[in-house]
Nucleic acid binder design. Structure first.
Lengths: 108, 108
DNA sequence: CTGCATCCGGTATGATACTG
DNA sequence: CAGTATCATACCGGATGCAG
């Protein structure tokens, strides 16, 4: 029933249903405003191209804000918008679940 | 800091950080135990192969249970395990966020 | 008839090198 | 430093085939 195109979960997934996007959000939630290189270092295994692509999509969806400083060397900062901040409860739940599940893993 | 390999969010993302997996979980949470064809119909745009692949991964990770009935015509049912059920709060938050955000969209 | 494995063509992704 | 361009590769979707 909620599986139409107006399904809330489907809508959410269309915006952040991608591994890298969640990890980008995690970084911004935890570190606040960050530069491109900072985010890149903080996410293990992502390529520059993929990071650029995902950042641009998140920006286009109004989840984060991209601020370019016209300097040399170039400096670009990314920060969460209000819409991005509103995703925090989801990230929190994922964090809580991960903690619980890692505890169980340790028991094994 | 939490960005090591033991980061809870990264762990969670590795298990369900995929668009189709979240939608599969949504279906099972909403409809309970379902057959392959039911899930396929319920998720718009997914191919049979992708559905099979994602279901197998979720099964391998212990999130859902696959039960084959040796009948003609064949029948395969998928249901959530206890581990899968424990993901519900995450789905709930995604649902809540989607509802809120769709409301804002309507205003536009 | 259902569930799913295989083959093939298009698309997305990763590694590297290069630019402003 | 923050990307872009290029190319090799891996992944994905669609059609087909097959077993039960």
């Amino acid at each position: 029933m909620p599986c139409d195109k107006s399904c809330p979960i489907e809508h959410t997934v269309n915006l952040i249903g991608h591994k890298w996007k969640v990890l980008i959000l995690r970084n911004l939630f935890h570190q606040g405003t960050q530069r491109f290189g900072e985010i890149h270092k903080g996410i293990h295994g992502i390529s520059q191209k993929m990071l650029t692509q995902q950042l641009r999509q998140l920006e286009a969806d109004g989840i984060l804000c991209r601020k370019v400083y016209p300097e040399v060397p170039p400096k670009v900062e990314y920060s969460l918008t209000a819409l991005g901040e509103s995703l925090k409860p989801i990230l929190d739940e994922m964090n809580k679940w991960g903690i619980e599940h890692l505890k169980q893993r340790d028991v094994d």
